[in-house]
Amino acid sequence: MKIKDEKYAMTFRIIAYTVTLFATVLCLFPFLLIISASFTPNEVIIREGFHLIPSKFSLEGYKMVFRFPETVLRAYWVTGVTTVVGTALGLFFITMAGYVLQRKDFKYRNYFSFFIYFTTLFGGGLVPWYILMTRYLNLMDTYTVLIFPGLMTPFLIILMKNFIRSAVPEEVFESAKIDGANDFKIYYRIVLQLSMPGIATVGLFLALAYWNDWFLSSLFINDQNMYQLQFYLYNIINSIQFISQMGAGTGISLGTDLPTESTKMAMAIIVTGPILFLYPFVQRYFVKGLTIGAVKG
């Protein structure tokens, strides 16, 4: 009996390691190409394409990105601030909403859920939203406009609601209520403590969305000192695309320093880097058994 169980566990583990290793290699491969390209001189990339190991080594791409270091650092700062503030605020609102929406004794929870969900189905399109943001709320060139639209998504709220529902047993609410705790206190003292994996997940997604966002910068930011990092990257790439599509008849030439292939790749690495360092800190919440520990502790 015991031996058989061991055998099954062994088989399972072999499958687990093989599959994850395989998936890892697949995910890593293109990334290595990009890293390698970022260290290859532009001319070599254009002539020979990508290689896993640069056939000629050069820091040209990175030098180009850091031509004006303060610009890149500035972009890091803006992205950092929006990510941290947005994630913190967003998490606060989302966890509160998630908590209320899963309370069985909250009568209108389904209507509110629908109210939230409905916005994923219908939208008025870009123009009215843009008009509202720029003309009525006057949010052009503000940090608010970089943070506000990303604070929450219906998906994250509903996800949070489900995480809380599965992490916090119904009895906990009842006993807390009997102890005389009000609804906010229950949320603050108990729910937040118990649903850490969920909060970590939602927080990670929020942070990623802020970190990866370029669209808000593109629409609402004219002041170059407020460009976000991803927009900086996108803009480099898009300038090239623009030039490749503009026929000679337009007479457009962009002067001396068109960004190059290696610059694009260097920029991609620079943008991704910090998240990779941060990710392991979030990860500890995904280790099994932690929830139990939290309850006991």
């Binding site: 609102f93 509160m96 909403a97 939230i116 939208g123 008025g124 009215p128 509202l132 506000f148 219906p154």
Partner: peptide, 18 residues
Amino acid sequence: MLLPVVVFFIINAYIPMV
């Protein structure tokens, strides 16, 4: 506790729905 979410969606989604 739900208020911020409601306000958010009214501004960010429902008003632009016009």
